[in-house]
Design a protein around this nucleic acid. Structure first.
Lengths: 138, 138
DNA sequence: ACATGTAATGCAACAATGTTGCAAATATAA
DNA sequence: TTATATTTGCAACATTGTTGCATTACATGT
């Protein structure tokens, strides 16, 4: 398992408390987390702006990525190492419990774009019910 | 070509100026429009809240749909009549000129979800360059 | 361990957007 | 034309995104 310090070192980023806090939170989670979910029991530990800028920094350095859901809410997850070829980023969002999962390499997408259009990356959000919620609700 | 009045009538919605304005704007456009793009030269014609609530009403009645882009911005487009089977909503977003196109029926998506997960709908945003911007930039 | 330059932080402030309640205005059906 | 339910505009507030700047903390070389 890769450590927080390794992740920061690899990107030539200084080790700061806020960066460690965020990376740790995501390393320990099996799902994507919103800013508030990340802050958890320590909503005041860092200034709002620091948190905001740290998320930007981590994203710019390819450590995390942002997932924008259909309700305008935003979650973050660690980047996986394996880059797939058409730059496909797929996530599942449970409409009931709000959890978001990264669907690494388990999706396929094809599009016929108009002539001369160029695709750089593809973002997919599947909306539905996770296993738990599907069984409770039905 | 279907008219604004037909669209409203079909959904048992009262004909109001704001509803007509929005539907008209989208009918006349070949691309998805943001709230400000819709307002165009008449940014003050309707109250901000009226516009906001009208968009919600139209979306709830299945007349329009919302497209949330990766930069948190939002655009709107008329719904197409043909419902595809896995409820796939695909859009192209030009990173340069910001235009958004609906890719009706020109995309295919498959996912292996974890056991017992249920998919209701799939939202795809392709980020890239449209033909015009691709030629200018390269 | 310490000084130093660079980078990150916290604060204040503001912008944009989402959201609600309520009284006044308006659309439709009789 | 009138009655009634719906829609509107206004005020107000919440949330999130964003910038500038003075202060503080980090990592490097000594």
């Amino acid at each position: 398992m890769i450590t927080v310090e390794e992740i920061l070192r690899k990107q030539d980023l200084r080790g700061t408390a806020c960066r460690r806090f965020i990376i740790n939170g995501l390393l320990e989670s099996d799902r994507a987390l919103s800013e508030n979910e990340l802050k958890g029991d320590f909503p005041e530990l860092f200034d709002r702006v620091t948190f905001y800028r740290t998320l930007i920094t981590l994203e710019e350095h390819g450590i995390i990525h942002k997932i924008v859901l259909n309700d305008n809410s935003v979650k973050y997850a660690l980047n996986s190492h394996h880059q797939n070829e058409n730059n496909l980023h797929s996530h599942f969002h449970c409409e009931e419990c709000d959890e978001v999962l990264c669907l690494e390499g388990k999706t396929r997408f094809e599009a016929e774009l108009p002539d001369n259009f160029v695709s750089h990356s593809v973002f997919v959000v599947i909306e539905g019910f996770c296993a738990d919620c599907a069984s409770h609700i039905k």
